[in-house]
């Protein structure tokens, strides 16, 4: 999962290393670092903001190691829904139990169907749907697409994906 973290570093040399080392030790993947050189907190520390990807079970250990290095962890927040994708489905979308498909994606906890447009021109005619999915990361988008792919294959739907995305 993707996590954002606000840290405070002491204003002495070598502190950034002490903040980053535990990330590597806990196998977290660093996405962004914003280091506010000019700012000072009321405690005269320097604020640093991180976004990282890590397994939920490693989070407590990571926090403990940071604190042990003298780095103050001010805030930890799950960074939700950074990735978004639109997918078109064509075929007998309604008959396939679209609600069930949406539930399957929503139930993952890491991805959510946030929009659905549907067009049904006639009973015997194929419907078209555009589904927007938000997810916490790229990998999670792929997992949501795998659910859609599975449904599309079973129900003979044509799935039109954005260019550059493989399902």
């Amino acid at each position: 999962m993707r996590i954002s973290m606000d840290l405070e570093l002491k204003d002495v040399p070598g502190q950034m290393l002490l903040a980053l080392q535990p990330l590597s030790e806990c196998r977290a993947n660093l996405i962004t670092v914003v280091h506010h050189h000019q700012k000072r907190t009321p405690r005269n520390t320097m604020p640093v903001q991180l976004v990282l990807e890590t397994k939920p079970e490693n989070l407590e250990l990571l926090k403990a190691r940071l604190e042990a290095n003298g780095v103050r962890v001010v805030r930890v927040g799950e960074h939700r829904f950074r990735e978004s994708i639109s997918v078109v489905l064509i075929g007998h979308v309604i008959h396939t139990g679209i609600q069930d498909t949406i539930n399957r994606i929503d139930k993952t906890g890491f991805a959510e169907v946030v929009d659905l447009s549907l067009s049904m021109p006639g009973i015997e005619m194929p419907s078209s749907a555009l589904i927007k999915i938000d997810a916490v990361g790229k990998e999670e988008i792929q997992q949501a697409l795998a659910i859609l792919k599975d449904v599309s294959a079973k129900k003979d739907l044509l799935m039109v994906l954005p260019i550059g995305i493989q399902a």
């Binding site: 078109v88 447009s117 067009s119 021109p121 419907s127 078209s128 555009l130 039109v160 954005p162």
Partner: peptide, 25 residues
């Protein structure tokens, strides 16, 4: 290989409303 025979005008319109065109790539 998947062709374009199943593409509907509704799908093209929906895609357009969301900033996309559908092309055989």
């Amino acid at each position: 290989v998947t062709g374009i025979t199943k593409i509907t005008p509704d799908a093209l319109e929906m895609a357009r409303e969301n900033g996309y065109v559908i092309k055989l790539i």
